[in-house]
Design a protein around this nucleic acid. Structure first.
Length: 268
DNA sequence: CGCCAGGCTTCTA
DNA sequence: TAGAAGCATGGC
């Protein structure tokens, strides 16, 4: 398989792909990662500050993979802004290679519906079974099934996923998305509360799933998912909320805080 | 066995 | 309109 190199900064594969924002990347024995993006199987590894890519062309990197990995964004600038606050600076220093990804909207929505009241290994397992059972065979691996494909099914059809009560939520989401009831333009560009309200028409989508979808699947850096970890971290580290200058990129701050809260031991 | 997991819906007062 | 129970499944 052909590979090519891209110089990168402010980027770590492990910190980006294993910080809970995506569920279809697996570490291989050499420290690289394999994942499915759209209908492609991509392999990534790092050598110093060089990202080594196979599975798509340099043109593909420019047109979609860089955006997918968040590598089209200027994190030097984001970090400089956020580091004006000492606590944020510490959180960034703990995992300076995190980038907020930009995944497909439908996949992100569906994945975070599955994530509710669940743990990451089981979320990944359910998504694997969803893709293998209902996605398109791309030659030994499977794409994420389209909303239209799932909209034709019932919750009982999804029983092999063992997704529990979430199966009905997946079907409701698929039917609404396939019917065009979830307006992408509003999600991407309307004020945050309007964008959130569109997604929350779906059964099983509350504030947390909506914000994750906006942040990881729609490039809405102003979205700020609040799960149990973030609530705990905010109460302890930012009792008065984030500083105002951080709010337009609150979602980026959120990823640093989330990772810091879970992994550093500084947040009880 | 009981508790918990990147919550949400439904029921209750 | 707030607060708690119930929800499927699986790991510990």
């Amino acid at each position: 398989m052909n590979t090519y190199n891209v110089p990168v900064v402010d980027f770590s594969l492990e910190e980006t792909l294993e910080c809970g924002q995506c569920f279809r990347w697996r570490r291989n024995k050499h420290g690289g990662y394999t994942g499915i993006v759209y209908d492609r199987r991509i392999e990534l590894s790092m050598d110093g500050d060089t990202l080594i890519i196979s599975g798509c062309t340099p043109e593909d990197y420019d047109s979609w993979l860089a955006q997918y990995l968040g590598l089209n964004q200027d994190y030097g600038s984001y970090k400089l802004t956020l580091s004006a606050d000492e606590t944020l600076k510490n959180a960034i220093g703990f995992a300076p290679g995190i980038r907020v990804m930009r995944q497909e909207l439908w996949e992100t929505l569906c994945s975070f519906i599955i994530s509710q009241n669940n743990n990451i290994p089981r979320i990944s397992g359910i998504i694997d079974r969803l893709c293998e059972g209902f996605g398109r065979d791309c030659g030994g691996y499977y794409s994420f099934p389209s909303a239209a494909a799932l909209a034709r099914l019932t919750a009982e059809d999804l029983a092999p996923l063992r997704a529990g009560f979430r199966a009905g939520y997946i079907i409701d989401a698929a039917q609404k998305v396939a019917a065009g009831a979830i307006d992408e333009e509003t999600i991407k560009n309307a004020p945050l509360n309007e964008a959130r309200a569109v997604l929350m028409q779906i059964r099983g989508v509350g504030p947390k799933v909506a914000e994750c979808t906006l942040l990881f699947g729609a490039g809405r850096y102003d979205a700020f998912p609040e799960d149990v970890w973030i609530k705990r971290a905010m109460a302890q580290l930012f009792p008065n909320g984030l500083p105002g200058y951080a709010l337009p990129i609150a979602g980026i701050a959120q990823q640093y805080i989330f990772h810091y809260a879970r992994k550093s031991g500084a947040v009880k």
